[in-house]
Design a protein around this nucleic acid. Structure first.
Lengths: 219, 219
DNA sequence: GGAATAGTGTCTGTGAGACACTATTAG
DNA sequence: CTAATAGTGTCTCACAGACACTATTCC
């Protein structure tokens, strides 16, 4: 970067698009909003001197009526012809929120939840623009993170049983997981609280908490 | 993204910075150029309707005198105060090139090679701006890729011995690797040619080639 | 022969996956 | 009691790491 005045260079419009996931009784779902082109990832242009993360949170709040948590950058889409209105560079993002957070948006009718298995397939929902690539990369990252850590985005409450955890992981992975292997690999990363569940059917189960409270879905 | 005219939004300047690695007799090194602020990663502003990859290759060619190969996006740096000249958003990139490619730039005196172990340490080279973060993330990715694949960026010639490959991997990793484990894990991913080295000291070794010719340093 | 490099065989520990069994609760 | 869930023990397989040995070449 040299010392040429900045005004000498034409500048692109900068936008963000966000793949937001949540887990419901139906499994892993993605949050979509209705645009001119149909169902799409919520996005917005970045305001002057606004941070990308702030733009993501703003778009989730105003377009989807939900409170984002920790937007994570995925990839920059820079095809100069990707938007017919002009030169627009978009940064794809990822976020994961608990079901309670999307409830408001759902009541308001501003968002649509779609199971990830129905995105991009025949008879399912087709996303516009570069959104399919954002979706695919975001889904890959979420599944990667959950295959290595108990609860990278803190979807579960402070304490939880291994059964709760496995139900969550199976929703994210979209398939059943072997029970014994799952428990052994997860127990290493969890801290037993000494308390037990009760009131449920079957034998009460030990409650655990995450060993390292801080989130870290990197690596 | 709504249908509001694009001109309604202020736009940031868009730039790229690239951490380019190469392997020399001294090990893994990074390509730096001299700017007002001292040694820095080569970078440039993105021209109108130019792709990020094209801007990266252009900056490597004009500032470093080297031919880039496959720039890969790392991360967007969006702190509005990161550049005193105004609102500049930078996309950090990564590339890895063979030693032969940097030779021209070295003769021209436009670049400086610095061993990665001397970047960011006391008594070593301090990078300006966000460049330390680009460097660290880029180094992590290169080491990750080489710990899983034989030669993700094709630094070795078409055929090579396991000894050559191990020397390369030890340069990248910055540490010695266990010989037997290294060979067994790599042999699975390589195809023996049936030919042997000759003219070297010691027992001649089988030559291998990469099983899948195409590059893929993703995952 | 000695130094240097290449290649192989074997043992141990760890962890994944499969399978089976016991334990504790609700109804 | 049965159904349902939780928890444990054991076996096998694959692979990493350590170690030791043999093989082939240059000097």
């Amino acid at each position: 970067m040299s010392s040429v005045p900045l005004t000498q260079f034409p500048r692109p419009s900068l936008a963000v698009d966000t793949a937001t996931f949540t887990v419901t009784g139906r499994g892993l779902e993605i949050v979509l909003v209705t645009e001119d082109v149909g169902l799409a990832l919520p996005g917005t242009f970045v305001h002057e001197r606004e941070r990308l993360e702030a733009a993501v949170l703003r778009s989730l709040r105003t377009k989807a009526g939900i409170t984002g948590r920790e937007p994570e950058q995925l990839h920059v889409f820079d095809d100069p012809d990707r938007d017919p209105r002009g030169w627009v560079v978009t940064v794809g993002h990822l976020d994961v929120v608990p079901g309670s957070v999307v409830a408001e948006g759902l009541r308001g009718g501003s968002i649509t939840l779609v199971p990830v298995s129905e995105v991009g397939v025949d008879g399912g929902v087709q996303l516009p623009y570069d959104h399919p690539r954002v979706f695919i990369e975001a889904l890959r990252r979420v599944r990667d993170a959950y295959s290595q850590h108990p609860d990278p985005w803190g979807l579960l409450p402070e304490t939880f049983s291994l059964g709760d955890l496995q139900t969550l992981h199976e929703a994210v992975a979209g398939e059943e997981l072997p029970r014994d292997t799952f428990r052994r690999s997860m127990k290493r990363q969890l801290e037993p609280t000494g308390d037990y569940t009760d009131g449920r059917r079957g034998r009460p189960s030990l409650l655990y908490r995450n060993r390292s409270a801080g989130h870290s879905h990197h690596g």
